[in-house]
Design a binder for these strands. Structure first.
Length: 556
RNA sequence: GGGCUUGUGGCUUAGCUUGGACAUAGCGCCGGGCUUCUAACCCGGAUGUCGGGGGUUCAAAUCCCCCCAGGCCCGCCA
């Protein structure tokens, strides 16, 4: 409802002012929408802004489009405020109780979203899952916003790290320990192999040889690489499932070598005026502000990651209308070079969402050095803590039900803790925060939802009533009305944390309402309209939580 | 050294792209609230040179410049 009302107001303002930018903004505590356009007009018309604001307000007051939507206009000094009336509130409430609330009209564009794509040389850690959770939340938001979406994981199965893993499995004592997860096993061998390399530089040549063999398509070597990568991915699959993160397709990097795409793209790169072919093939992108050379092919003839990535993105460009990548901040430079080169090749470049690093209190994480907190450990610890909490609060529930709730609570705590922070902030992983299930947490929002469910359950059947009256009711309904616009903003700005903040704000407002306004104990019309409002809150929270990849549990 | 990025009460954080009405919320602290729809909750209070300095503007947390501090990057790694 907000999106529609905003459009009407914006159109009317443009008409009355003749400006293309009417500075329409959220009204905060003053109004539902507000504009400071009078300041801009004051300069043009050389009149005081207060006078201009009054004139515009008068002109808008007579506008039939605003009247039809029951939008009141008033001036407060130079500010023009818009206040939505009962028709808006009614329409908002009616929309918010519909199944699937928040979904936007279907679109035809096909979007490909790549996220996680961690190197398969060890388990996913708390840095990787920032990628997974941002990516998965964006994916859910895109689907809710009506897009046709395919989510991909790009499997780096032929990099140096994997060659080191394979070298380790061939040359070191590398048996799997009982109960050891595949990805943890691979990390152990990878770490051990790196220690050997530090001691003996000759090993690097053996690793290089492995890389040449795999690029050349040597059957036995390819098989070894595939085997370890696949095992690591099996481990990832368990972690990602626990995090409620899903991919539609795993795209293997080596496929772009095997099918000739990489050779083809290298051929095209060679013809670019920026190409510099000496021993290596590289691009000189200095005219675009890049100071380093962008290497595409090694002097031994093998391709580097950049070449295969170009092939992958050219493929995305041909098969999708839009491509979105979620990548760590360490990929900023190569991401910009990738985009630059794709443009030179006449391909659609991806839109890249970068997120900053997660470090540990003792310093940055490193798989190679074995310095990381694995996602599996995090999940196990948070789940254990959640089970204890559920047991304290609901001792009467059978254990299996407490376990089920604990699992959902843990998932909510982890996902929310990560997605609530703006991606551009680097963070330090903090166990205390990860294990906090109170204010500004996922469980806090789940709890508000469970409270709403509990009321609805006890209420039984009731006739829906959309005529809200009390200030607290109207405030809440207006907040629910913002949900579709929030979904819209998440996909247009590629900022999933906006949804996290919004869901928390709805929970805040509802908890306050819950405390002051009796629902089941009120009578007649009041009971009906409040129950309808509770249903709308429950429905909105459910849709918001599910878009965040969090279970909207009915009891906890 | 160069580039990108972050810096908001003791701690964490929203707002910054699109400059405007007393800067958002949480933790922690102080004080209240469970015979009442689940207290994973609610209400009140104290706490801010929006890193520092200049500039643009009627108006700057928000835009521009300089400086300081942290993170990331600058590889024939990925």
């Amino acid at each position: 409802m907000l999106r529609e009302a905003r459009e009407v107001v914006e159109r009317a303002l443009k008409e009355k002012t003749g400006l293309s930018d009417v500075a329409l903004a959220d009204g905060g505590e003053h109004a539902d929408l507000a504009t400071t356009v009078a300041f801009a007009l004051a300069i043009i018309r050389k009149q005081p802004p207060v006078k201009i604001a009054a004139e515009i307000t008068q002109a808008l007051a007579a506008d039939p489009a605003l009247k039809a939507l029951d939008i009141a206009v008033e001036t407060k000094g130079p500010y023009i405020n818009f206040r939505f009336g009962s028709a808006y509130v009614r329409g908002s409430l009616k929309a918010a109780v519909q199944p699937g609330y928040g979904s936007l009209p279907k679109r035809q564009e096909r979007v490909v979203l790549e996220h996680t794509s961690a190197n398969p040389n060890g388990p996913l850690h708390v840095g990787h899952i920032r990628n997974s959770i941002i990516g998965d939340t964006l994916a859910r938001a895109f689907r809710k916003a009506g897009y046709r979406l395919e989510v991909q994981y790009y499997v780096n199965d032929m990099g140096r790290q994997i060659a080191i893993v394979v070298w380790g499995f061939t040359n070191l004592d590398s048996g799997q320990q009982p109960g050891e997860k595949e990805d943890a096993h691979i990390a152990r061998v990878y770490i051990a192999a790196n220690r050997e390399i530090e001691k003996d530089e000759g090993i690097t040549q053996q690793v290089d040889k492995l890389m040449q063999l795999v690029e050349g398509g040597d059957a036995a070597t390819v098989k070894k690489f595939r085997k370890e990568v696949a095992r690591c991915l099996d481990g990832f699959a368990v972690t990602l499932k626990d995090l409620n993160v899903a991919h539609d397709r795993f795209v293997w990097e080596s496929d772009f070598v095997r099918n000739g795409d990489t050779a083809r793209i290298i051929g095209l790169v060679k013809k670019l005026p920026q190409a510099r072919e000496e021993e290596t093939l590289a691009l000189d992108l200095s005219e675009f502000g890049f100071t380093n050379k962008y290497v595409i092919r090694r002097s031994d003839g093998t391709s580097v990651y950049a070449a295969r990535d170009l092939a992958y993105h050219a493929w995305k460009s041909r098969n999708f209308d839009r491509a979105i990548d979620v990548l760590g901040a360490d990929h900023k430079l190569i991401g910009a070079q990738l985009i630059c080169t794709l443009k030179l090749l006449g391909e659609k470049p991806p839109e890249i969402v970068h997120f900053e690093f997660v470090s540990l209190p003792e310093g940055s994480m490193s798989t190679r050095a074995g310095k990381f907190v694995s996602a599996d450990d995090l999940i196990a610890e948070v789940t254990k803590q959640a089970f204890d909490e559920v047991t304290v609060r609901r001792p009467e529930l059978p254990e299996d039900q407490r376990r089920t709730i604990a699992k959902s609570v843990a998932l909510a705590a982890i996902r929310y803790d990560i997605v609530k922070v703006s991606p551009e902030k680097s963070t330090v992983f903090d166990w205390k925060e990860a294990l906090d299930f109170e204010r500004q947490s996922g469980p806090y929002i789940q709890y508000a939802h469970a409270r709403a469910c509990s009321i609805l359950e006890k209420a039984g059947e009731f006739p829906e009533c959309y005529d809200l009256a009390d200030e607290s009711e109207i405030t809440l309904a207006k907040q629910l009305a913002r949900f579709p616009a929030v979904i819209q903003n998440v996909v247009s700005d590629l900022r999933p944390h906006l949804l996290a903040i919004y869901a928390r704000e709805v929970a805040d407002t509802f908890n306050s309402f819950y405390h002051f306004e009796p629902v089941l104990k009120s009578e007649g019309k009041v009971r009906d309209r409040r129950l309808t409002l509770v249903k709308a809150v429950q429905n909105t929270l459910k849709e918001a939580l599910e878009t965040l990849g969090i279970d909207a549990v009915r009891t906890m």
